[in-house]
Nucleic acid binder design. Structure first.
Length: 809
DNA sequence: TAATTCGCTAGACCGA
DNA sequence: TCGGTCTAGCGAA
């Protein structure tokens, strides 16, 4: 029998059943021949059973039969296995996944069975982990003439995935006659397509004067052209923007209506729309469908992007600083009906696909690296939370270490865990007012480094061998093994070291190369995982949840920050403020930046393991303020370095739920005070703003406030302004979904603020409540700063005090 | 389908 | 109408 050995990019993995009802894994690889599908009919779904006596129960279980009205199921086999963290484990296998699902609940009732494990690892993921494969990495397959895989292994030698990835994007424009587009009724009027080599817009029946536009006779011809184009280009990855919830489902429905086959999957089948939680997700079998919208959402969660709206216009601006013209749905309808201005629509349509392609080009490397690290497909990675990614990283690592994976907690357990919160970081009350010569120190990746340095892991917790030893005894009283690093902790250390190694490699590579971009993406993926480890330890649904570990981490964190503050004071610095992993120190006249660095060095010599205190910066001036209710405000301050650069933290200026006019005024006040030391100028700025508001000439944009609608309108106990605005808009026929960020204004009409609140699009220029914006926005934002300089509200709003109060003496 | 706690503040809501 | 309490959202780390 001829055996062929091929290496290819592992794009997709799923499973089917053969004629005999046996589960069969399918692997989709990009080889020299295109995307080839290989099957592995010999891998069986399984899970583990922990029992009192493995040898005895093996026979019993193999003899058992489970049945209902429709079927009878038996195990394929049960085999005793040695696991590093459990005795008497049986690995029980099944013909297929539905048999497994049928039996997994029942088998717990069998005599001698104590527990079942790993019964909820999806079959295809199970295969990837057990075979040591890497999705979006290369795999070597030895296959017979029918493409049955006889051997499968990861091909770590090859690493050119990102360079060679075939990516294509498309985007639809549809008709929406006075309502949201409905694929059952409304036609697609334009489709843009973009890949590395070509860009097109397809339309039908109209004249469009653009050379990149191809005009077809009808919608059917146009849609067919897209389908043909995708099949011709045979991409590894199809990227859309919002394709999960819009473009793909819409296309699918249209194809059905038009009698077209939407056969763009690598095996010639059609994409499937899956329900994923509250959202949809569209799978293109054999290839990967990545919705760039999900990538953008991830970037927003990571703080790379600060977005209110997630449309491509906002993204283009935030990511690339470029203005992209928006063409509204009604404009598209109008252009289509009149046949005029279709060039503008085509430009817009093409720009959508082009920007989507650009986002893909820039951020697919991160997806690819994350896929390889966590053994998930690009499809899954781009739609997963960091919690899920960490979980799969640990699942894979468990398998490699022959460890049995803990089960997901039951719902009662989740509730019980969530009920008891735990103490977090320490925040020191600052001294309100103006300060000069402030040094900021912080612990580099504090929580990860505590976990690594103190061997924090569920399996090293309170070990018998280290009882009474002080070395890894947390302030909580729990201790961790000194002899063993622990599963969780050692994995974290590996990641930490790997990242340092990659960062070293990056220094030897030119920045504009693909190699650099890949390395950058790799260390970034590691950083994301690194920073999620502590969070999941205290996450109620996490398999490896450990309250003891989570509390030990924060307790040590508080301990070390206190130590630094104390040591600083002993050395002649004045501790000003601290938050979780940082320490703000005021330098006395005789001390310099160098002394701070020396101090940090001294601290570092005494710190355990990989923990490190870093010098973050030295600032000329800083201001801390008093809370409205009195007392020093935490998490709110502004610093200015010796070059005049401002850092504003926690103030209204950084909050999206405050109006631009208040934020901008606040910033100018901070600038006047910190940069120029001119509080009287600040007063002038405030008075001018108030005057402008009173005259009613402030444009809408400066008055918008943004707040997310976090639940369905009816589910609120209190109707806040943004909810009231949403209610009114919905009554007018607007469709507002949970999770959308509302842009609203406080208008003149109504009594309460909620009554006055309206979505910005329904408000005409000049219709705003000046009193509200003065008294509830501008004044509260600036008064907290001006108060520190001895000014009162009256001083700002009315005449009064003009002289500076010698703020810097 | 879902990473953590700490902290500030608004505006609604409720009872006197 | 006023003041206290609570819901809700956002940001820091």
């Amino acid at each position: 029998m001829a055996v062929r050995k091929v290496s290819g990019l592992l794009l997709d993995i799923d499973s089917t059943q053969d004629e005999q009802g046996l589960a069969c894994i399918r692997l989709f690889l990009r080889t020299g021949k295109g995307i080839e599908c290989f099957t592995d009919p010999d891998f069986r779904p399984y899970f583990y059973v922990l029992c009192d006596d493995a040898a005895k129960r093996k026979k019993e279980l193999e003899g058992m039969e489970w049945q209902d009205a429709n079927r009878k199921v038996r195990l394929l086999k049960a085999e005793a296995v040695e696991k590093a963290n459990a005795g008497n484990a049986l690995k029980v296998s099944f013909k297929n996944t539905s048999d497994l699902t049928f039996v997994r609940g029942e088998i717990r009732k069998a005599a001698g069975v104590k527990e079942t494990r790993e019964y909820d690892i999806p079959f295809a993921k199970r295969y990837v982990i057990d075979k040591g494969l890497e999705p979006m990495g290369y795999a070597v397959v030895e296959a017979d003439a029918e493409n049955r895989a006889l051997r499968v292994a990861c091909d770590r030698e090859r690493d050119e995935a990102v360079k060679r990835l075939r990516v294509c994007c498309f985007d639809l424009e549809t008709l929406s006659p006075g309502r949201f587009s409905d694929p059952k009724r409304d036609a697609i009027v334009m489709i843009s397509y973009a890949d590395a080599d070509e860009q097109h817009v397809f339309t039908f029946g109209k004249k469009v004067k653009r050379d990149y536009v191809t005009v077809f006779d009808d919608e059917r011809g146009m849609v067919q052209a897209l389908v043909d184009k995708i099949k011709e280009k045979d991409p590894d990855i199809v990227v859309t923007y919002n394709g999960d919830s819009f473009d793909f489902p819409y296309l699918k429905e249209r194809c059905q209506r038009l009698g077209l086959k939407f056969d763009v999957n690598a095996d010639g089948s059609e994409p499937v729309v899956r329900q994923k939680g509250m959202d949809k997700a569209v799978k293109v079998r054999g290839r990967q469908h990545v919705d760039a919208f999900q990538i953008v959402r991830l970037l927003a969660r990571l703080g790379v992007l600060d977005l209110v709206k997630f449309d491509l216009e906002a993204v283009a601006k935030a990511l690339y600083g470029e203005e992209k013209e928006k063409v509204k749905p009604e404009e598209i309808n109008q252009a289509w009906d009149s046949g005029k201005g279709l060039e503008r629509v085509a430009d817009y349509n093409l720009a959508d696909a082009a920007y989507t392609l650009r986002i893909a080009r820039d951020y697919l490397p991160l997806t690819v690296e994350m896929a390889k690290l966590t053994k998930q497909t690009a499809f899954d990675v781009s739609r997963s939370s960091t919690g899920i990614l960490v979980e799969y990283l640990l699942i894979d690592k468990s398998y490699r270490n022959n460890l049995l994976i803990p089960n997901k907690p039951r719902e009662e357990e989740v509730e019980a865990r969530a009920e008891k919160s735990f103490e977090g970081g320490y925040v020191k009350s600052p001294v309100p007012g103006l300060h000069e010569n402030i040094a900021v120190l912080d612990f580099r990746s504090m929580y990860p480094s505590i976990i690594v340095s103190h061997h924090i892991s569920p399996d090293t917790l309170n070990c018998a061998c280290c009882k009474g030893l002080d070395k890894h005894k947390a302030p909580t009283g729990d201790w961790f093994c000194d002899k063993r690093q622990g599963f969780f902790s050692s994995l974290l250390e590996d990641i930490l070291n790997k990242r340092i190694e990659i960062q070293k490699q990056m220094k030897a590579v030119a920045k504009d190369t693909t190699e650099y971009k890949v390395l950058y993406a790799r260390q970034w993926a590691l950083k994301i995982l690194l920073n999620s480890f502590y969070g999941v330890l205290g996450y109620a649904r996490f398999r490896w949840y450990s309250r003891e570990c989570a509390t030990a981490v924060t307790a040590w964190g508080r301990h070390y920050v206190h130590e630094v503050l104390q040591a600083a004071e002993n050395d002649g610095f004045t501790p000003l403020y601290a938050d979780s992993d940082s320490a703000f120190l005021i330098l006395p006249r005789e001390k310099s930046e160098d002394d701070v660095k020396k101090f940090a060095k001294k601290v570092n010599e005494a710190l355990p393991g990989v923990m490190e205190l870093e010098f973050e910066g030295y600032y000329r001036r800083g201001i801390f303020v008093t809370k409205k209710e009195g007392g020093a405000a935490k998490k709110k301050y502004a610093l200015m370095d010796f070059e005049g650069n401002l850092t504003i933290v926690g103030f209204e200026y950084v909050r999206r739920d405050w109006a631009q006019i208040a934020k901008e005024t606040q910033k100018r006040v901070i600038e006047a005070v910190l940069k120029e030391g001119k509080p009287d100028k600040a007063v002038k700025v405030v008075r001018e703003t108030i005057e402008r508001l009173k005259q009613g000439r402030v444009p809408k944009e400066e008055l918008f406030m943004y707040t997310m609608l976090r639940r369905t309108v009816g589910k609120y106990e209190q109707v806040a302004p943004h909810v009231a605005a949403a209610e009114k808009a919905i009554k007018r026929g607007k469709d507002i979904g949970v999770g959308s960020v509302l842009e609203f204004i406080i208008t003149k009409s109504g009594k309460t603020i909620s009554e006055k609140a309206e979505l910005a699009e329904f408000v005409r220029e000049g219709d705003y409540d000046a009193e509200y914006y003065i008294n509830n926005q501008v004044v509260p934002a600036v008064i907290k700063i001006m108060r520190e300089l001895g000014y009162s509200e009256q001083d700002l709003v009315h005449g009064g005090k003009q002289s500076s109060l010698g703020a810097f003496t």
